[in-house]
Design a protein around this nucleic acid. Structure first.
Length: 839
RNA sequence: GCGAGAGUGGCGGAAUUGGCAGACGCGCUAGACUUAGGAUCUAGUGGGCUAAAACCUGUAGGGGUUCAAGUCCCCUCUCUCGCACCA
């Protein structure tokens, strides 16, 4: 065995500390080069500063960092910024609990996070950091609110909204996960409140259409999630008019949305959502008033979750009133039912029990007639056990009888249109984005209410509307700002009279809907962003972050970008050309969580093994887009690899240095071992480059590097020192350092210095591979008989098909299986195999 | 229920275009060095049958296409994710 009495042990913490200081001194965190270089905007979703970064952050930021570093080394001018999504509930909740002001805790958390990110070797330009809770940032968030307000895209309206009783605030639809609060998991209730909304629904179609622009750079599954969320459905709105002269609203029409206008003749009843405003006014007679209010109470007693569950029993009652079917003229009874939702469509439906399972169940329960109007075979059937929801031929439908249902949809709607009783319509599931929050730690909505002038936007020159510092921020259901007289009372910007400020703050997703623009000119105090800079850098070339934001941040920021495009403020319609969703990091098969106590923090790992080990292992664990399970012994394996790498490079440096003054060794002609090593080196460079930049397969890139290290170790150990080809040892050593440097920036920098370099390795261009060198001289060719592997041979890579065949047929092992049988044919795949088919 | 994706050794995973299944790593076994080893190095490691070789078998299960299937097609099962009484 070799002796290494002079070799320093791989001591990650000493090395990394030294290198950090060197970087700090040389200020080389930023990857920006010059504007004439092609730009590359590498962005990772910025973190909420919760304290120490967690493993998910480490994974997210390591992936981004590696891509950014490789791109920079490939000659790109790289913008790789970091900042903090610093407004939000946790800081405020913590403040309520322990009395520390959200600003203090946020700032101290940011400090911790910044330090940790640096410690992990992230190549951020820390001088352009942004913090969304700083007035210098939220001033422009408020400005953008006013831009949207000016475009008519911000609107205060009364609507049933999601209320989280635990967080004491309203939530956007996207923040309700199966009836529960996205943040605290407590059940969400419905409340009717007047709140600020951004009219994202007006952009629903464009959010769908513009997927065309990004479809090559986004995973299909993310677009699918967004498509489902937007939930476009085509159909018709049909007006039913209320029947009855004894009521003042006899000319009232009630529109319904349906995707199946072809089933109109099968509408045997009609349902209003219990909360539908019409319910109050149409119900007459003590008997009905009593019954309806009893059922309404019953339904409102059901929680959102319960009512939203398809398993929940359908309940409802007859209102005593009727509507008129606009085509058949039939009198149709009006019911209320828990399964009809006020928020979707028009809050009313025509119920077609024969062709809708829900209506079917309801009709069965309450003995409402079921009438078949679509028949798969055109023949009228009696009593089916369930609703038929497929296509077919129209029956029981007057003049439409015999028509195919698909055509019927169009023809029925056209007729309705002609009679002004309906029209084609597209409906979306997407709701407007509720941005008001009744909480303190957010950007104040820059609006003033004046008795004389009404709702008045705060003039641009008066921004920012500062968040007051001294506030009692205990949640009461009203914004804490409402109790802050100095804040609330103001002068109307329009008439100068007394006025009150809006006291709600903005959803933090507003802050993160434009931060990618701010990064382009982070210190600009004259504008939200500098157009020239934005024109240069945007759109983001590669975005990395968790897929859990598919229907939130990723939709909101797409919407924002489109609004700004319409306003002429930006020249692009989509903010992120490419998006890569990384997978989560679990522990013991479950999500890491404080409450379960199954947490491994990045700091534990970098304190014990160093940041290089953390980075290497987190990438090596598995494909970057799938969930992975943390394993301590796996991390140790990565540490061992770095130790082996350390010894190899040190030994090689020794070999190179020694050869420097014992002339002659360098000129040795390459033999088989050298050719093998060089071939492997160049194939490795090729694979690592493609795996990182094209496939995001960091795990296979690393395994390729490991293979090369294994081979280089063999060369070191098995070839006597005096017979080594030093030129080749040198090339392998340098390029190994280069390909590992984006992944393990510390150890490679240290070894680079040991090898006698003074400039940072992170400024050295990415190595190209030589296609000639990467070629294999010999290939293992597989010989099969009837598709079964029987033999293999090392054959020259350029061997002809005929010679391959000849070699295969000459193989003893092949002969053994072909003997006495008839060779039907021989299939030869160049560079791969020969398959002899016998009978 | 609808939509999307996945299922490969003891474990994480690899196999990029249908062409050597299990790269790389963890774990394990044996050995070397050693006062010691939880450092390092060497060898082995899907299962079966073996002294060994040879051979057979093997990618959730079943069927199919093909000279050839982890990969393509059909059915079944399981898991993950998204949406979910959306009219």
């Amino acid at each position: 065995m070799r002796r290494r009495e002079n070799l320093k042990k791989y001591d990650a913490s000493v090395i990394e500390e030294e290198i950090l200081q060197k970087w700090e001194k040389e200020k080389i965190f930023s990857l920006k080069s010059k504007k004439s270089d092609p730009k590359f905007y590498m962005l990772e979703m910025f973190p909420y500063p919760s304290g120490e970064p967690h493993m998910g952050h480490a994974r997210n930021y390591t992936i981004g960092d590696v891509i950014a570093r490789v791109m920079s080394r490939k000659g790109k001018n790289v913008l790789h910024p970091i900042g903090f999504d610093a407004f939000g509930l946790p800081a405020e909740n913590a403040a309520i609990k322990n009395g520390i002001h959200p600003k203090e805790s946020t700032m101290s958390n940011i400090e911790k996070m910044r330090t940790a990110l640096k410690r992990m070797g992230m190549s951020y330009d820390f001088s352009s950091e942004i913090i969304t809770s700083e007035p210098g940032y939220y001033r422009w968030t408020q400005w953008l609110f006013l831009v949207l307000y000016g475009m008519g895209l911000a609107e205060k309206k009364e609507a049933p909204v999601n209320w989280c009783g635990s967080c004491q605030t309203v939530l956007a639809n996207e923040q309700v996960i199966s009836g529960r609060c996205e943040r605290c998991s407590s059940p969400v209730e419905k409340k009717v409140l007047s709140q600020w909304f951004f009219k994202i629904t007006g952009y629903a179609q464009r959010l769908l259409d513009d997927m065309e622009i990004i479809k090559d750079g986004w995973p299909e599954r993310v677009l699918t999630i967004q498509r489902n969320w937007i939930g476009r459905s085509e159909g018709a709105v049909i007006d039913f008019s209320l029947y009855g002269k004894d009521c003042k609203g006899s000319d009232v029409t009630v529109p319904v949305f349906t995707t199946r206008p072809d089933t109109l003749f099968g509408a045997t009843f009609f349902i209003l959502a219990p909360e539908h405003p019409l319910v109050e006014s149409i119900v007459v007679g003590d008997e009905y008033i009593k019954e309806v209010s009893r059922v309404k109470k019953l339904i409102s007693g059901q929680s959102e979750t319960e009512r939203g569950d398809a398993e929940t029993e359908k309940i409802g009652c007859f209102t005593g009133r009727f509507v008129i079917n606009p085509l058949s003229g039939e009198k149709v009874p009006v019911w209320i039912a828990n399964y009809v939702l006020l928020e979707y469509g028009t809050g009313a439906i025509m119920a077609v029990p024969a062709h809708d399972q829900r209506d079917f169940e309801f009709a069965k329960k309450y003995n409402i007639p079921i009438r078949e109007v679509i028949s798969p075979d055109g023949i009228v059937h009696e009593n089916t056990g369930s609703a038929y929801t497929g296509e077919g031929f129209m029956v029981n439908s007057g003049q439409f009888n015999g028509l195919e249902s698909v055509k019927g949809m169009k023809e029925v709607t056209s007729l309705l249109e002609k009679r002004e009783k309906g029209r084609f319509e597209v409906n979306f599931r997407l709701r407007d984005w509720l941005i008001s929050r009744q909480r303190y730690w957010g950007a104040p909505i820059p609006i003033v209410y004046c008795d004389r002038c009404g709702t008045v936007p705060v003039p641009e020159k008066d921004l920012p509307v500062l968040l007051p510092y001294n506030v009692d921020f205990r949640p009461t259901g009203l914004s804490p700002l409402a109790y802050c007289d100095d804040f609330v009372n103001t002068a109307c910007p329009s008439c100068g009279g007394p006025a009150r400020r809006e006291t709600d703050t903005m959803d933090t997703f507003v802050c993160s809907s434009w931060y990618f623009l701010r990064y382009c000119s982070p210190h600009d105090d004259r504008a939200a962003f500098d157009s020239a800079e934005v024109d240069y850098w945007m759109p983001v070339d590669q975005y990395v972050g968790g897929i859990e934001h598919a229907t939130m941040h990723l939709i909101y920021s797409r919407f924002f970008t489109k609004a700004l495009f319409d306003r002429g403020l930006v020249k692009f319609r989509e903010p992120y050309n490419n998006y890569f969703p990384h997978g989560v990091v679990n522990l013991g098969g479950a999500k890491m969580s404080k409450s379960k106590g199954n947490i491994v923090n990045p700091s534990e790992i970098y304190n014990k093994y160093g940041a290089d080990t953390l980075r290497l292992y987190i990438l090596f664990m598995g494909p970057a887009d799938s969930p992975v399970d943390w394993s301590d012994s796996g991390a140790e394996g990565s540490y061992r690899f770095l130790g082996r790498f350390w010894r190899l490079i040190n030994d090689n440096i020794g070999t190179i240095k020694k050869a420097g003054y014992t002339r002659g060794t360098a000129a040795r002609l390459p033999g088989d071992r050298e050719k093998e090593l060089m071939g492997k080196l160049h194939r490795t460079i090729k694979k690592v480059t493609a795996d990182i930049l094209e496939r995001f397969n960091f795990n296979t890139a690393i395994s390729a590097i490991m293979e090369l290290v294994n081979l280089a170790c063999k060369y070191r150990d098995e070839v006597p020192e005096e017979r080594k080809n030093v030129a080749i040892v040198k090339e392998v050593t340098i390029k190994l350092l280069l390909v590992l440097s984006p992944i393990a920036p510390f150890i490679t920098e240290k070894l680079w210095m040991e090898a006698g370099n003074t400039a940072s390795i992170h400024r050295v261009p990415w190595p190209d591979y030589d296609p000639e060198m990467a070629k294999e001289e010999f290939l293992t060719i597989v010989f099969q008989v009837n598709g079964k592997l029987r033999d293999r041979a090392e054959l020259p890579a350029d061997i002809s098909v005929e010679e391959m065949e000849k070699a295969a047929l000459a193989s003893g092992k092949v002969k053994k299986f072909t003997e006495g049988r008839k060779i039907v044919k021989v299939i030869t795949v160049p560079k791969k195999l020969v398959n002899v088919v016998v009978r």
